[in-house]
Amino acid sequence: MSFINYLSREINCKIVYYGPGLCGKTTNLQYIYNKTNPEAKGKMISLATETERTLFFDFLPLALGEIRGFKTRFHLYTVPGQVFYDASRKLILKGVDGVVFVADSQIARMEANLESMENLRTNLAEQGYSLDKLPHVIQYNKRDMPSVAPVEELRSLLNPNGMPDFGAIATTGDGVFDTLKAVAKLVLTELKRGGAGG
C-alpha cells in the first residue's frame, strides 16, 4: 500500500524481494546500497542470523527522484528465504506494492525456486492479493555459477505471465539496477492507474 503525503509531497512505495534461501536477495540490496549516493539512501538494516542468513528482513530506504513535484521514495525489503521462516515472510508481504522474485539459476535449485514461487502466490492470496495483478518482475540470479539452467527454461517455469525478467549476477551488480528500475516503473504505472494488489 503506497503512501501519498500531500504535505511533504512524497510518495512512498514498498517493494519486497522474494525467493528461495541463498538466491541472493540480500546481495541485491547490498549492491544497491553500495552504489547509491548518500543523499538518496538511508541506513540499510539487516536482521540476520550469525551466519548472515536473513532472520526477519533487510530494509533499505531509497529516493529515486521527482515526478510532477512529488518525491518518490521506495522502501526495499527482503524476506528470509529459508522455508521455516514462513510466518515472517507473510508479515513482510503486508502492504506490498511490488515484488522482485529472485530465482537461483543453478539447476540444483530449480525445485527450491518453484516451491518459493508457489509460496509467494499462497501468501499473497492469504492477504487477498493475486500475483497476476501485482506489479512484479523476475530476476534469474547467479548467472556466473557453473551449472545453471538456460534462461528460456527458467522463464517457462517461473514467468508464465511474461513479466519483465533479467539475468543477474548480484555479487558484481549485473542486472541489479535493471531489475529495480523495472519493478519501480511497474509500481508507478499501477499507481497511475489507481489500483493496487487485487
Partner: peptide, 13 residues
Amino acid sequence: MTNPQMVMYEEEF
C-alpha cells in the same frame, strides 16, 4: 484493493 491507500493531507497532518 485490500488496504485502502494511505494518504496524508495538510488538515489532518
